[in-house]
Nucleic acid binder design. Structure first.
Lengths: 222, 222
DNA sequence: GCTAGCCTGTCATCGAACTGAAAGGTCGCC
DNA sequence: GGCGACCTTTCAGTTCGATGACAGGCTAGC
């Protein structure tokens, strides 16, 4: 297990390195954000522990760089700022978890363990496919920068298809994610209707919804 | 995006449900740990928000149940206990994230968003043979990464042949596996027909269906 | 409070895909 | 050579999905 620590406070950095090595990890440490990016370019770390404030590039920037470049590294952010707005920004930038100083070292280790249990290859906050771009936070989709006018249900379905790309998504999953009440009584063809409407809005989007008979639907590029 | 809220404090529960619904999520709520497990059995939630202390079964128990049973749901734990040892126990039990009361609602939403960005857990093991790869959970087959368009019956037959590889599979077994309903329908040559069609789709797949005269069929590599 | 507009789910219809029966050809074994 | 097992193609019936039309519900704006 390889971990990158990026922290400018020397005392804290040494505590982290020492403690994590004692816990059995291989640890590299840097004290600048731009150095962190350099390291991330060349090694596939399992976890990166980033300080919020750092010389060079701040932790958030490092996190969003890693996200944009599809680095397989889980990111744990450290900060002294406890104000929720900041923390939100950190999480939305692509951090996987968050810890506020001062923190208990045992808890840090526990969170690192929790992170490495998670499957890797996390997707970017914004889903892109073809000429489409779906922002889950804003609940909106753009086609070549132009806003697409999707209904709520359509957006849920499209989001699901994009998240599961290129897998087949079955009707049950679609129904459960896009509607509230239903259990199994899908005696109607609502899904088909919504698919039809969604398809109509996706012409020329670089993306197509394919039917997999008997199984469900999946997205296809081009 | 579907969320389960398990919280016994009625006031907080209603705040959570209302707030999350306003944020665009589909929310179900229960006030007992055992009810939470029942819900998790039946629906594939994207995220479950669990209170630490609850009537019935505590949140940690629910989390570890979900982990043991490979539920695809990410778990966010809520607690009033701030002592790190407790928090560590929560994370190790299988929680994906953690929030201490009282918390800022905006932060809760941010954490939920961070959780849902992660890919879901792994499903059933994938069968590989030759250049073929069959995913039983998704009910799809890929040839060199490209999706093969098999009908339901063809897929069942192929799955059986792959699972039994390299043994011979007799016609009776094939019929029973691919048509759950019938018992003695072997009055026609349906199986032969399906085999023929399946073979046609398996050209150049690194795999061949061999006939064992008088016994059945088996798969052969290369 | 009313109206226009959008969203939703149901239905009917059309078309495409899948299925199984049948017919005729091929092959292996005696 | 004969026979039975197996292979392939064809064809029609059926199932499943796509789509346009419609009515009820909800909302925003007046």
């Amino acid at each position: 297990m390889r971990i990158l620590v990026a922290e400018d406070d020397r005392g804290l950095r040494e505590v982290l390195v020492q403690g994590l090595e004692d816990a059995g990890y291989l640890v590299d440490a840097v004290d600048r954000g731009d150095d962190a990016i350099e390291q991330l370019k060349f090694y596939e770390y399992d976890v990166a522990i980033l300080d919020w404030r750092m010389p060079g590039v701040p932790g958030v920037e490092v996190a969003s760089w890693a996200r944009r470049n599809d680095r397989p590294t889980a990111i744990l952010m450290l900060t002294a700022r406890d104000a929720p707005p900041d923390r939100i920004q950190g999480l939305d930038a692509g951090a996987d978890d968050y810890l506020v100083k001062p923190f208990d070292f045992g808890e840090l280790v526990a969170r690192v363990r929790a992170l490495q249990r998670r499957p890797r290859g996390v997707g970017a906050p914004v889903l892109n496919r073809g000429r489409l771009s779906l922002d889950p936070a804003r609940r909106q989709v753009t086609l070549n920068g132009k806003l697409l006018n999707l209904t709520t249900a359509e957006l849920y379905i499209l989001e699901l298809l994009m998240r599961r790309f290129p897998s087949v998504v079955d009707r049950k999953a679609i129904a459960e994610h896009a509607w509230r009440d239903e259990t199994e009584p899908l005696g109607s063809n609502v899904i088909d209707v919504k698919m039809s409407r969604l398809r109509a809005k996706l012409v020329n989007s670089g993306v197509r919804i394919l039917t997999v008979r008997g199984s469900g639907f999946r997205l296809e590029e081009a």
